[in-house]
């Protein structure tokens, strides 16, 4: 039992590795912010393309969402980080992670937005436009707020996935939370830093998954 505690819950080692883990956490938060924010914006445009009356726009956006949902994000990441240099394109690890996960994530957000947009009755568009609102004004003030409310649980779940996804960045040695925890583990020959990192993820995501359940129940009611 002592060995178990010593190997996994060694307070002393956790304390020593804390600064490193906090640096990693900071990086993880930066990655998440970039991917989530850009993903939410990019996803909306992809979704609008998907619902456009222009056939070529629809085609591009469907191809985009299909491609980047089908490609494993890790494959995408390694390709962008390690593959593109063969074409003379060198990218920082941070940029590589953001681009790879943005491509993946914006396609998922786009599908969520699309479900939300088609859940808003056509009459809402017609009523708004009959009062002289432009299509953009109608979208912003009338349709989007309702669409987002209808798919809030899915938007949130997707956001939870992004946070988890960023731990994959450790494979290209980007010093985010998991990577730094691994470093601390190999230096101390002790698993406690990994346990601490897991706790960080838990603290970060547990409220979010709770919120998802809460909204799901409220929407079902």
């Amino acid at each position: 039992m002592d060995i178990f505690i010593d190997q996994f819950f060694n307070i002393e080692i956790m304390r020593k590795s804390l600064p490193l883990l906090l640096t990693g956490l900071w990086m993880t938060l930066q990655l998440c912010s970039a991917v989530i924010l850009l993903g939410l914006i990019g996803g909306l445009f992809v979704a609008l393309g998907n619902m456009s009356e222009r056939r070529w726009l629809r085609f591009i956006s469907i191809a985009y969402t299909d491609l980047f949902r089908a490609l494993p994000p890790l494959v995408l990441l390694i390709f962008i980080y390690a593959g593109l240099p063969f074409a003379g394109i060198n990218i920082s690890p941070f940029a590589a992670v953001v681009i790879a996960f943005l491509l993946n994530n914006s396609s998922y957000y786009a599908e969520v937005y699309r479900a939300g947009l088609i859940s808003v009755a056509k009459g809402q568009w017609e009523a708004a436009q009959s009062t002289g609102l432009s299509p953009t004004q109608t979208l912003i003030h009338v349709v989007l707020p309702q669409a987002m409310r209808n798919v809030l649980p899915d938007l949130l779940s997707n956001t939870v996935e992004v946070v988890k996804l960023t731990s994959l960045a450790s494979v290209i040695s980007l010093s985010e939370l998991l990577y730094n925890a691994g470093m601390a583990r190999s230096v101390t020959y002790n698993a406690s830093p990994l346990v601490l990192a897991a706790l960080f993820y838990l603290v970060l995501l547990w409220p979010l998954v709770r919120l998802v359940s809460h909204f799901q129940r409220r929407l079902a009611a």
Partner: peptide, 16 residues
């Protein structure tokens, strides 16, 4: 369109 008011069978008020 501002000069042409339209009232629908289904009202279509903005619920939010």
């Amino acid at each position: 369109r501002l000069q042409i008011g339209m009232v629908f069978q289904g009202f279509h008020l903005y619920p939010h």
